[in-house]
Design a protein around this nucleic acid. Sequence first.
DNA 1: TAGGCCATCTGGTCCT
DNA 2: AGGACCAGATGGCCTA
Length: 281
Amino acid sequence: MLTLPFEESHMMCEPRFGANHPREGFLERLEPERPHDPARSSSALREAEEDLTDREEDEREDEHDDDDGLPKKRGPRKKKAGKEKMDRSRLRRQEANARERNRMHGLNAALESLRKVVPCYSKTQKLSKIETLRLAKNYIWALSETLSAGKRPDLLTFVQTLCKGLSQPTTNLVAGCLQLNARHFLTDHGGEVMFSGRSPYDAVYSPPMNFNGIFSLKQEDPPDYAKSSHYGMRYCGAPGRAALAHGSMYRVSPEARFPYDLHVRSQPFQAQGEVNGSFHN
DNA sequence: TAGGCCATCTGGTCCT
DNA sequence: AGGACCAGATGGCCTA
């Protein structure tokens, strides 16, 4: 791990802190208001130790300067200047690291909020970053398709769209969230989700939970979705049945009932324009 | 134990 | 000059 910038040798030794070297205060000055993170704390502490060790060396040098009251030149000034430059460079690096951490934390926070508005959010079984982005893309696409069609999609088509390009575990998770049997989906090499050929309605539809308007089922969840999300899918009834072309890519007749109502802020949306407007708000 | 995922550090590049 | 952004490297953790 490249976590030992510049000189490392002193870090292998016992820290030489005196009782009057407040580490914590220094750390707080370095990176204020960060949530506790063991890994991060250790690295920050390491950085702080480096810095404090350097300062202590400076102070020790200064102690020898005034034995006879005259300022003594100890060692080349050039070296001191170089050391100051190095200290400054190191400090800037530490500050840059802190900014980078904060930036990544912001990115992760945004990703977490995205997780909460795509289907199948779970605190305990979090989607990976890449799967979250893929699922979000598919979700937007699926909703757009639904709007364009102007009618309810069938569940399996919807899930099929959701699962395009997702890994098998995530596909299973999505199918599980939607109370579908994942056996009915096959994934080809291109990541396209195919139906195996069995009737989708062989799958058991146990009553999905209405999760405050979000299309996230069977998951434990904070109850503030209705507040935080604009769009959701609400389960509204038992699915109909549709004929399948046996052994072919799964298609469902348009008459098949989709067991969900699309809702915008708990109101059935009427037009795509409204949705687009809301998105841009 | 290998592989996936993640957090962090780091140096480079671009922009203000 | 300094901050934001990015990608590569690295090591830790977890799971199959």
